[in-house]
Write a protein that binds this DNA or RNA. Structure first.
Lengths: 226, 226
DNA sequence: CAAAAAATTCAACGATCATTGAAAATAAGG
DNA sequence: CCTTATTTTCAATGATCGTTGAATTTTTTG
């Protein structure tokens, strides 16, 4: 009911041309994050994005194509930011290499870097990744597809920081970190209810401040020699 | 294609009457665990359970009713087992109360107790809980509904074992443990791929042996006074 | 400005969805 | 054995699903 095409202020030219694809991505991202792949219909996406039903299929080929485009869009940004943070802390550390805390920090902090508090798009994206990561159907292959090269670089850094560690323990430690991270950013409100409102799941800085030492201690306990 | 009604050996009487409801629950549990609530149709359930399409609606009222029945069925068992393990370790510990490791052990070990390796039903259930736990739509309220009283008893035990700890840190620590646990039991195969097959996500005992010290160290680092 | 290309709309396709009322079959109770 | 209650089947409902071909509009290109 908003405005019919033609009338209303048409804004700038590209505000109507390229913006439609992005509006579809943003709307679908929010919906997939909340309801999962099968809980969202193309009609819901079209309505939320205020575009014609057929337009998403035209731009992305299929519902699955739309889903993949959403995952890819921010994965590229996130991977670059994480790897940049890793290289930065490696350069600063010198020969000895960075500490466990510094590596974990490089892994976690980028999630808060892209204006997490302000940009609901990133919040939706992390909620989506949390669902994908825990999906037995697609979790393994999709996380591998979009995050593996980045994750392997971090694994190498951990190995160097924890010389002589049991490799299996290293991978499990990373896995535990991934699980803690994704549930935290899943924004389910669970911790709010369990703590009777004492803890707010919206306060990601508070969660971040605790996740780094928590995970670091776990890594050390499990992987530190002697 | 198995056997049509009437012919074939009808087994005992109740083997055909009550067993149908259980067959529906088992089939739906496996399907929901893999595809999520919206990824499963009543027809898929009926086909897998080898019953008529209308039977699940008759027994459980609706698709959502079926879903809730699945969650509830094993939640009751799991909560009892966990609380029994908690009380047992509290009795054995005496006045000083149990250690962090003992409490975490009481929380984690019951997942392996119900014949995890043999009983695929429990494996499916944990996969389902992993998805629910990370679902922004239902995660918070469903986990609260089915696991809150048990979780609060464990929180009390943690508080007693870590006197003077910042309450917020305690809740976050529990949250991180929950995330690590659910992702591990989600069985996504992610860790297999990341480690090039070095680590098998099927080896839950290996994961358990590492999760206890990992999480315990995190709790201590974050919540131990001194 | 005209022609070509890209983007958008419209209408419809066949398939599948969850649910249900009525009929049929089975089990339980007297 | 007869009656009643429960369970199971059957058939159909209206709704919604993802996708698509053709028509129309808008943008780009020459």
């Amino acid at each position: 009911m908003q405005e019919k095409r033609g009338l209303g202020l048409p804004k700038t030219k590209e505000n109507r041309r390229v913006k439609r694809k992005d509006r579809i991505l943003d709307a679908a991202e929010a919906l997939f994050a909340r309801h999962g792949f099968d809980g969202v219909s193309m009609r819901m996406v079209a309505e939320k994005a205020e575009v014609d039903l057929a337009l998403a299929s035209y731009h992305f080929g299929s519902k699955r194509g739309l889903f993949d485009a959403i995952l890819l869009r921010r994965a590229e940004v996130l991977n670059e930011t994480r790897l940049a943070a890793l290289e930065k802390c490696q350069l600063e550390a010198g020969d000895g290499g960075p500490t466990i805390e510094a590596i974990i920090d490089a892994y976690l902090k980028p999630l808060l870097a892209h204006g997490y508090e302000e940009d609901e798009g990133w919040r939706h994206y992390f909620e989506l990744v949390a669902q994908v990561n825990n999906s037995p159907e697609f979790g393994g292959q999709l996380m591998t597809k979009y995050f593996d090269p980045m994750a392997r670089k971090f694994m190498d850094a951990f190995k160097k920081a924890l010389p002589g560690a049991d490799p299996e323990s290293l991978y499990w430690s990373y896995h535990f970190m991934s699980g803690a991270l994704t549930l935290t950013f899943a924004n389910t409100g669970r911790i709010d209810q369990l703590s009777d409102g004492l803890v707010s799941s919206k306060n990601m800085v508070a969660a971040y401040d605790r996740m780094v030492p928590f995970v670091a201690a776990g890594f050390r306990q499990l992987c530190e020699k002697e």
